[in-house]
Design a protein around this nucleic acid. Structure first.
Length: 303
DNA sequence: TAGCAGGAAAATC
DNA sequence: GATTTTCCTGCT
């Protein structure tokens, strides 16, 4: 089915899909190809509208407006995080970059795989899991795979997952799948909580209950920001840590600053992470997560 | 709490 | 072709 989506507010499809928040979109020729739910679609930005072609499924304009959060006005949000020259420049450089509203389970599973890996690697692992355990379907003559649901992955042998290139992440992914399929973790419930409770609950449910799994504060923040509507969540990865140390030394505790700027850079303890993340939330405000996304892009571009 | 292993692939030299 | 780095977490 073909349709167009009008853009009433700034939006850059390229920046949004290249900003490391999602791992399944592919840029081929003029189009971006993606799998959402049980269908596939291709999207192309033409000025202030999106041209879309999707498989039959309920992949329509209303679905995409929700996924790309197009009903939210970006200007006032961008203005709210432009507290200084650095962020003003970043917002102007990557104008139109938006946060997505992703599926909770897919987002959680993807970021569990993201530890100690670069983006091409993460994309490869996610694609590998989908082709091994997702359901295949055709779109424009090519085969695509759905993201396998938690119930499916919960019954897979860890050794089998390991064999598909996940390495030490395999047992983590399986435990997360078990927790989600058993209902111990529920995206809808997490969404209802305020940020602090949601973050705590995610960490507690996922690690405290001996369910182990590779979900620490950083992965939890990614999931809250990208799939639970917690716009103040401020994930701090190595890039963000570097950018904070470089452009926002006054926000960073002197000891932590020293640790981040030495060679090789030290890693944040859990306490240092939560302190720094809280300071960043306080500084950038209720949309700190968007500021984080622009900072990330700046960091990647500056090398 | 500081240090380190973990698995494999991409970047870099 | 070898070495370092990689959107990190959990264990000691």
């Amino acid at each position: 089915m073909e349709f167009t989506v009008a853009l009433g507010s700034p939006f850059s499809l390229d920046y949004t899909l290249e900003s490391g928040q999602v791992f399944r979109w592919e840029h081929r020729g003029e189009w971006w190809y993606g799998v959402l739910g049980r269908g596939a679609l291709k999207v192309k930005q033409e000025g202030d509208s999106l041209r879309c072609v999707s498989s039959e499924d309920p992949l329509d304009g209303s679905f995409l407006r929700s996924y790309f959060r197009l009903d939210e006005q970006l200007e006032p949000i961008m203005a709210s995080v432009m507290k200084d020259q650095t962020m003003t420049a970043a917002v102007q450089r990557f104008y139109g970059l938006r946060l997505l509203r992703q599926d909770f389970w897919e987002c959680l599973a993807s970021f569990v795989l993201a530890t100690n890996a670069n983006i091409p690697r993460i994309r490869k692992m996610v694609a590998s899991v989908c082709s091994a355990y997702g359901d295949p379907f055709e779109f424009e003559g090519l085969t695509y795979f759905t993201f396998p649901d938690a119930e499916r992955l919960a019954e897979v042998q860890v050794s089998e997952l390991r064999a598909s290139g996940l390495g030490y992440r395999a047992p983590f992914l399986r435990r997360v799948a078990e927790s989600v399929s058993r209902g111990a973790v529920n995206g809808g419930e997490v969404e209802m909580m305020d940020y602090d409770r949601a973050h705590g609950a995610l960490l507690k449910v996922l690690s405290g209950e001996k369910l182990l799994l590779g979900v620490g504060p950083k992965v939890a923040d990614c999931v809250l920001l990208y799939s639970c509507g917690k716009d103040e969540a401020f994930p701090i990865d190595v890039w963000i840590a570097r950018e904070l140390a470089r452009s926002y030394p006054n926000l960073v505790d002197p000891g932590v600053l020293k640790k981040l700027t030495r060679e090789p850079p030290g890693k944040l303890t859990q306490r240092e992470y939560s302190d720094l993340s809280r300071v960043a939330r306080g500084y950038f405000g209720p949309h700190a997560g968007l500021a984080q996304q622009y900072l990330y892009m700046m960091g990647r571009e500056n090398g």
